[in-house]
Amino acid sequence: MAERRVTVQAEVGLHARPAATFVQTAAKAGIDVTLAKVGGQPVNAKSILSVLALDVRQGENVVISAEGDGAEELVETLAAIASAP
């Protein structure tokens, strides 16, 4: 199980283009990957609607988790997208 905790930096939060890039990248992976607010219920990171509905704002912390082949690499990439300004 690979896991990263990051602070969302984009001014728009994890909405609009940052959310689209995040989900498109997650969707390409062959393994399951989730996104959660700290202490919250994880949602499918490949679902744009679920990610949008989390309503992650700038400055909030999220946890990205994946399990399986390439999980480390995947959460690393997604963490970089989520924390990009």
């Binding site: 689209a20 499918n44 490949k46 679902s47 609607l49």
Partner: peptide
Amino acid sequence: QDVLEAQAMMARDPGL
């Protein structure tokens, strides 16, 4: 195009 492509992503949403 950005708006319509975002809509296309929603149509393909696995949660849906």
